[in-house]
Structures are given as C-alpha cells and as structure tokens.
C-alpha cells in the first residue's frame, strides 16, 4: 500500500475544526473557529498525556470494581454480598448460559479489552511500533463503539435495587464495587475520547516514509 501519496491537511497548511468540520488554514491554530467558536487545534492538546492519565486511573479502579461487592441480596434476613464475577457464576450455575455470557462480556471482557486496546494504542505511539495504521484505527473504533456497553451492569443493579425492596421478605442493596465499576467505564470512555486518532497517521506522512526508505 503506497501511503506516500496521501497528504494530511496539516502538511498542506490546513486545519480541520473537529466540532463543526470547517476547514481553516493552519495559521489559525489556537484561534477560535468562526463558525462554532471553539478553539482550533491541528491536533488535540496534550492528547497522549490525558489519554494515559484516564487509562491509568481506570486500571486502578478496575481492582476495587472486581473485588468489592456490587450488591447484597437478602431474603428473610439472610444473604451474602456478591461481586461481579460472583453474579456471573450464579447465572451460569443457575443454567442461564446466554444471559451469563452477555453479562460476562459486558462486565469483564469488554472493560479488559478496552483497557488493553487503549494500552496497545498508547504504547505503539510511544515506542513507534511499526504496525498498520489502519488496524490501529479500527482498534480505536472498536474501543470507542463498545465502551458504553459496559455500563450494562450498573443499570442491572439500578433496576434490581429499585424492584426488590420488600422489607424483610427480600431486598437488594447496592455495594461500593458498583461505584468503582462505574468509574472504570467512564474513565476508559474519557481515555478514548481524549485520544486523537490523527496521531496514528502522522508518522505515515510522505517525508517520514522517504526517511524510513533511505
């Protein structure tokens, strides 16, 4: 694939407003877009630092999210707190394979893949790994698209807690693992949001390609 024939807007002296998609000239950097009045940046400012910061924060929250109980089910005064994994195992042992799989994917696999995906993107830019820019873009799009769906377990807890409030008969109360889990989801979404995908393609600029060839 000859990536050398492609020219980026920045190389040609242009700058795209990412809010309203108006094209400006590069000398308008740091000024305000005349259509939407947001600040113009050829590349998002401090994008990698911000993306790293949110990602590391989400990794830290990942442990309490999985270790602390997310809810406690009590029936006739007895019951034990359960974690995310505990709830999934309960679904599997109860024979609800399909739904157990959905919760497993949304609550454990997607957050892990999101964190690993962002980590791969950030590390590959940091150490200039020579991997395909197109693959990295698709990886980013996957992370971005799938990100919101891990909020699923939070909404399941919200519905259960509201429905099962029958005093001593049966009640479900939420646990602090849910707070940490919500934090993981939001922080990974923010990490992806602050990542400027245009950086993936910047090293494929023609000048760079020539440089590598010689």
């Amino acid at each position: 694939m000859n990536t050398g024939s492609y020219k980026s807007a920045r190389q040609e002296g242009y700058l795209l407003c990412r809010h309203c998609h108006t094209l400006h000239t590069l000398d308008q950097q740091d000024q305000h877009c005349h259509v939407c009045e947001t600040p113009l940046h050829s590349r998002m400012e401090h994008t990698l630092q911000r993306s790293w910061a949110f990602l590391l924060a989400s990794v830290i929250c990942f442990f309490p999210a999985n270790l602390l109980p997310i809810m406690t089910f009590k029936s006739f005064g007895s019951g034990a707190p359960s974690t995310i994994m505990g709830g999934i195992i309960e679904l599997f042992t109860g024979g609800f394979w399909g739904i157990g799989l959905v919760v497993l994917i949304a609550s454990i696999i997607i957050p892990c893949l999101k964190i690993l995906g962002m980590l791969t993107l950030l590390l590959s830019l940091k150490f200039h790994w020579r991997t395909s820019a197109r693959q990295k873009t698709w990886l980013y799009r996957g992370v971005e698209w799938v990100g919101r769906w891990s909020m699923l377990d939070i909404f399941v807890i919200a519905v259960l807690v509201a429905l099962v409030q029958l005093g001593s008969l049966a009640s479900i109360s939420p646990g602090h693992g849910a707070t940490a889990f919500a934090a993981v989801v939001i922080l990974t979404m923010l990490s992806a949001l602050n990542f400027d995908t245009r950086l993936i393609w910047d090293k494929y600029a023609p000048t760079d390609t020539q440089h590598h060839d010689t």
Partner: peptide, 27 residues
Amino acid sequence: LSIFGQQQSETILQSVLSLYDGGLAIV
C-alpha cells in the same frame, strides 16, 4: 414485581432514588 402478595414497581427515577438511598450517591 409481585412476590408473596406484595407489589413493587419501578421507574427510571425510582432506580436512581433507590441507589441514592442505598448509599451510592455517585452511581
């Protein structure tokens, strides 16, 4: 939901309130 003759219904806003009552203001 009905169980042992008791009934409980749920709206989105009620689920928010229940979480708040359960001590999880952030969630």
